Amino acid sequence: MSFTILQRSRNGIRSLKVTKLGIMSLLTFAVTLPVITAVGGYQLAKYRGHIASVDQDTINDWRTQLADQRTELDKAKERSQKKLNALTARLGILQAHVRRLDAAGSRIANIAGIDANEFNFSQPPAIGGPEEPESVSSNSSDAEFLTLLDDLSSQLLSREQQLSAIESLVLDKHIGVESYISGRPITKGWMSSFYGRRTDPFSGRPAWHAGLDFAGKEGAPVVSTAAGVVSFVGDRHGYGLLIEISHGDGFVTRYGHNKTALVKVGEVISKNQQIAEMGNSGRSTGAHVHYEILKNGRQINPLRYVNRRSKS
């Protein structure tokens, strides 16, 4: 079986003969083409969907990594800021300490009448000597900051040495007669306990008493028995509010159980100057002053110093 297709053209009528095999081939192609197209489209869509899924997972992973890195960066910034704040605070404390030492040194030098050119606190001390090079951090700013702190620490040490020298000059050369320990640490009152062995007022047992007690009214003046420099002000076990004054040549006087301190560490004190108000702080049964004298760190009997006359 076959078909003949006639087609008119300029050259006349042309004929095309279609056999049964050709017709079957066309029908087969027409039937299978939609199926092939559908299967191909499905596979293509599936492939594209798989690629898109992989890309999205990668993007999500990148986002997670970026978030983790951002968190670590924030933590690093926070740690750096804390370190910087701590170092800045340390620097501020050191600078304030230097200013206080400078002021105290200038004040003591002025009181002592020492030549300002001998102890000039406005100029850095002259120092020198060969030094070995040392390794520094790769972070130059950190190295410079730490160097600044080391320089300030060196300045503090230098100031303390200068003040110690000035203290000796003040006590040995310019205080003179006033550094002579004599008299009582009170202006009004009475001696209520002697130096040596006594009955402890709390336990009732024999105990050693390393000073003299002077009783009086709470708030009464407590005075220094000699000129010197205040070396300690604060609470101490058994003494309550305690004041210590250094008088040079190894002598130190102590005044315990005070109500209020009127002096501070580093202050230059003259003889008979009020340093505190009598109180009842610490291990005490009433308002009084516990008075001690130390020679080279050892407590001695203050009685002969209390009874001796002042130098004229």
Rank of each mutant, 00 (worst) to 15 (best):
F145N: 14
N60V: 05
N120Y: 08
N296Q: 11
L212S: 02
L262P: 12
S270A: 10
Y42Q: 06
L27T: 05
G286D: 06
S203V: 01
R198P: 00
Q81E: 12
L242M: 13
T32K: 03
T88N: 11
D142R: 09
H247K: 03
Y291H: 11
E292T: 12
S281C: 03
S182V: 01
K264E: 10
G196E: 09
R107P: 00
E160T: 11
H237E: 09
L84K: 06
R90G: 03
S164F: 07
Y255F: 12
A76T: 14
Q123W: 03
S15V: 10
A220C: 00
A210D: 15
G286K: 06
S246A: 13
R14L: 06
S53T: 09
I114F: 11
A103L: 10
N60S: 12
Y305V: 04
R63Q: 14
L149D: 04
N117Y: 06
V136E: 10
R198K: 08
T285I: 05
L94P: 03
L303R: 13
L156W: 00
L66A: 15
R107D: 09
G128K: 07
L87P: 01
M1E: 12
K217Q: 14
L91R: 15
L156V: 15
D115P: 03
S15H: 11
Q56A: 14
E267L: 04
K46D: 04
S193Q: 09
I13P: 02
G92A: 15
S182N: 08
L44I: 05
R184I: 07
E277S: 11
V98Q: 09
S312I: 08
E78N: 13
I243F: 03
E118P: 01
D150S: 13
I293W: 04
G219V: 04
G41W: 09
I166T: 11
V170F: 10
V170A: 15
H174Y: 14
Y239R: 01
E167C: 03
G279R: 02
D200F: 02
